[in-house]
Design a protein around this nucleic acid. Structure first.
Lengths: 140, 140
DNA sequence: TTAGAGTAGATGCAAACGCATTAGTCACCA
DNA sequence: TGGTGACTAATGCGTTTGCATCTACTCTAA
């Protein structure tokens, strides 16, 4: 068991523990955490997002994301229109209702996150961000 | 956006990117990553594991885990027998075939993990393990 | 000893998922 | 210009998931 494997296992454990903790909180309304994540990713960029681009930020297969967006469009949270520049693709944006819902849920969730990570020192928070940032960039 | 929220988002991103990377590798045979994880968790402890104990280590609902164990029992990877000390519970162990399969997959996967984390310095690996370890312990 | 609360795991069922494939579009070059 | 290969998103289909509930067992205390 190398250091790398220990570190990865520890990261997975932390992810799992905290995800369960967050999921157990009664703040999600009629959304699942995965659905919230999609709204959150959209809320970060004001310019319309492509499906494939969104898929890069979400741990879901392409068909699963396609259908989840379907449902969120039906429920009035996302606007999906064809991309004029590339007729294969679509442009996804939050509707006002979607943006509002994201904020309503994001606010208490952000507090939960802050609380859960409050066991770390400011230096550790900084290190964690830097280290995990390096890991994300290692896409081959 | 606090430091804590940035750090958590960065951790989630790293988890997502690496999970997709690992999943894309052609090493999983007839198992899904989730199923492998269950076999791996069992491989770590030689004494039989309770369902609820196993559930604590895996990001799955209790019913989903119950059924996944069902399937792995049917496929000959896990042995499930009633706990003599508590007749509500069960004792889960790997069968020889399960242990063998776990090793067969675990070996190349461990190499993938090592390779993916090779962008980090030894100090960073150590810090990552320590920091994520603290996060897992923060169960309230 | 037994009633009631608590815990462990299984099951019914609708919703969501992944894999494989398809339809439609683009981009390049002969 | 027309054909081939790459790319984007959607769809068919069988499997897996989560929620709610259920059964069975344990534990505590009256």
């Amino acid at each position: 068991m190398t250091r790398a494997n220990e570190a990865w296992e520890s990261l997975m454990k932390a992810y799992s523990v905290l995800m369960k903790q967050f999921n157990a909180e009664d703040i999600w309304g009629d959304l699942t955490m995965r659905e919230y994540d999609v709204l959150y990713q959209l809320s970060k960029c004001d310019s319309p997002l492509r499906m494939s681009e969104l898929n890069r930020h979400v741990l879901l297969s392409q068909p699963a994301l396609s259908r989840m967006v379907d449902r969120l469009v039906d429920r009035g949270y996302i606007d999906r229109c064809p991309d004029p520049g590339d007729r294969r693709g679509v442009r996804l944006t939050l509707t006002p209702a979607g943006r509002e819902t994201q904020k309503q849920i994001g606010s208490p969730h952000a507090r939960s996150v802050t609380r859960a990570l409050s066991v770390l020192t400011p230096e550790e928070l900084e290190q964690l961000a830097v280290i995990t940032g390096k890991l994300s960039q290692s896409e081959e």
